[in-house]
Structure formats: C-alpha cells, structure tokens
Simulated scan of single mutants.
Amino acid sequence: MKLNFFKSKETRHTIAFYNIENLFDVYDDEITRDNDMQPTAEKRWSIKRYKNKLRKIGYAISCIGEEDVKRHPAIVGLAEVENEAVLKDLVYSKHLDDLDYKFLHYNSPDERGIDVALLYDEKVFKIAYSKTFTVDLLDDDGEVDHTRDILLVSGLFEGLELHVIVNHWPSRRTGDVATEHKRMKASEKVTEVISMLKEKNSEAKIVVMGDFNDDPESNSLKALEASHGLFNPMRTLLSNDRGTTSFNHSWNLFDQFLITHNFFERKKNALRFVEANIFDADFLKEAEGKYKGTPYRTYVGKHYKGGYSDHFPVYMVISKK
C-alpha cells in the first residue's frame, strides 16, 4: 500500500550505498598494501580489467532505484575505493559521465588502502561541511590497529538540512566473535558523531549508511539503533534467500541504512522516508553454477571473474513534500 501524501514521484530521490570491492588503480602505492592489485601480481590486475570494472560499477550505480524514482541516485556512499584518482575515473566513466556527479573523499589510515567516499548530485545535495572520524583500535600486541575512518557529510538536500554518515566497519576476517569488539568500537564512534550533531540541532535528520560487517540483529547494530532511537529499514530484508553478500552459501545483510525517526514526520516541507531495498538486479548476479544468484564478483580469491562486486548495493527512497 502506498501512502496517499506522496502525490508525485517527481519529489522522490534515491540515496544509495555500495561496497564496490577493491576499486584500485594499477599503480603501486608504497604506503598501502596494494601489491595484489598490480599487473605483475598473481591477480594480474590490468588497465583493461580496471576500465571494465569502472564501466560496470558506473552502470550499476546509474541503475540503482531507477524504477522507483526514474532518475539516478542523488547520493551514493561507497566503500573500498583506493584514492581520489579512481573516483575521478569513476565519475567520468561511460555511464556516469553525463550525470555530473561530484565526490568527497579523504585518505584514511586503513592498511589495505581502502576508504569510504561519497558521490553526490550537486543539484540536489549541496555540501556545507564534512569531516572524518577515526575508530581507535588496538591489536593483540597493544599496537594501533588501523581501520577505515567514518565520514560525516552535512548539507542541504533539496534545501533542507541533512547529515550523512558513511561507514565501513572492521571485517570478520578472523571470525565474527573474535572481531566483534572492533565493530562495537565503531558503533560507539558513530553514536558520538550523532550526539555531536544533535547537540547542535536536536531535530537533525541523519542517515547512517555503510558496510557494517554485521547483520541488523548483531550487537553493534542493535546498540547503535538503541543509542539514539534510530530506525533500521533493512531489518526485514535478510532471509535464507536474500541479502547483500554471501559466504559459504549463507546470506548476510552487512550493507544497511539507519535513520532518525523524524523521517516519518508529516509536516510540510520535510524529507520523508518512503522505502528501502536491496538492489539485486539479475545483471549483478552469478547466472549459473553453484553460486547462482549471489553477487557477480570481480575476483574470487585470485581468480578473475570480471563481475561487479562481492556486495549488492542498497538504497532508500526519500520524498520532499
């Protein structure tokens, strides 16, 4: 059932998030661990493969939410980008060049050299402020354990104040239980950022997005949700047959949005939540074999598949009335 106060789709926009699986250029960066993504490495990353990746990711982004709002996303949070150069190549790639996306990116201390970033349509979202926040972690030896920074971007969305917090929380590489404390730390940092925003404006409208490496019912997400009474519209989307990333034939919903409850207010001239979904179009899926229906990846281990990403994008539709 559609709510009757949405008179026209023309007032609707899509906000998306996409972990694009290691968008690296082919050049060696001595500071980060990018040796796998070199032409001479076992993965044999090349200019041809890089350009193919740009074209495919650009096409996927251009399609997100198109059936719902008939236009490209106004905002796209990204995870796993190497640097500013790959973002420039992405926004000027075949399917995005005409859309005039701008982007925001800061280098983070992550040892793998992967950062979060934000693409945005400046005609819809005009940025006023941005800042990154470091998640302070220690490894088992008491040394600093670097991970991705959290990105805050504030501005005017269709003339109305909006804050977007982009995340890529620590992975489960050594086990979900063994690494849970790292994601709890990231959750606490996001809670601090939201508190800071609400101190300045108690009615701040906030979208938290990202690859959290945890599902909606994980402790880190439940703690964040409870800390400021946030709403997680992704909670009901995870099932045995659907998610955003798959491991050992089991689905996870690591890619999510959490929003402040004032997205449900009915007053005039306000941004309102309409719906959220996984963008899992058929072209983003493995077409056959034992992994049929799962994300069509760029690599499986060292083996080049030539696909899009090991994650499906997610999106939410908001409306201004």
Rank of each mutant, 00 (worst) to 15 (best):
K123W: 09
K126D: 00
I127N: 00
A128G: 13
A128I: 01
Y129W: 03
S130P: 03
S130F: 01
S130Q: 06
K131S: 14
T132C: 09
T134F: 01
V135R: 04
V135K: 04
V135C: 11
D136K: 12
L137S: 10
L137F: 12
D139T: 08
D139F: 07
D139L: 07
D141E: 15
E143G: 06
V144D: 13
D145V: 00
D145C: 08
H146F: 13
H146G: 04
T147V: 15
D149P: 04
D149G: 03
L152A: 07
L152M: 10
V153K: 07
S154F: 01
G155I: 02
G155F: 05
L156C: 02
L156Y: 02
F157L: 08
E158F: 03
G159W: 09
L160V: 11
L160R: 12
L162Q: 04
H163R: 05
H163A: 13
H163F: 06
H163S: 14
V164I: 15
N167R: 10
P170Q: 04
P170C: 10
R172E: 03
R173E: 11
R173Q: 11
R173S: 12
T174F: 08
G175P: 02
D176K: 13
V177F: 00
A178H: 05
E180C: 02
H181W: 11
H181K: 09
H181A: 07
R183C: 14
M184I: 15
M184W: 06
K185H: 09
A186M: 09
K189G: 02
K189Q: 12
K189F: 00
K189I: 05
V193D: 00
I194F: 02
S195A: 15
M196D: 14
E199P: 01
E199N: 14
K200L: 10
N201K: 02
N201C: 13
S202N: 10
S202D: 10
E203R: 00
A204T: 02
K205E: 07
I206T: 06
I206R: 01
V208I: 08
G210P: 13
F212M: 11
N213P: 05
D214P: 08
D214E: 11
D214F: 03
D215Q: 05
E217N: 07
S218F: 10
N219W: 05
S220T: 08
L221K: 05
L221T: 15
L221I: 15
K222R: 15
A223K: 08
L224C: 09
L224W: 11
E225D: 14
S227R: 11
S227W: 06
S227Q: 11
G229M: 04
M234Y: 09
M234A: 06
T236W: 07
L238D: 05
S239P: 04
N240M: 06
D241K: 14
D241G: 12
D241R: 11
D241N: 14
T244R: 00
T244F: 07
T245G: 02
H249K: 10
H249M: 02
H249W: 00
W251K: 06
N252T: 00
L253M: 03
F254W: 00
F254H: 01
F254A: 02
Q256R: 01
Q256M: 00
F257I: 07
L258P: 09
I259F: 01
T260V: 01
T260G: 02
N262I: 12
F263T: 12
F263Q: 12
F264E: 09
E265V: 06
E265D: 12
R266Q: 14
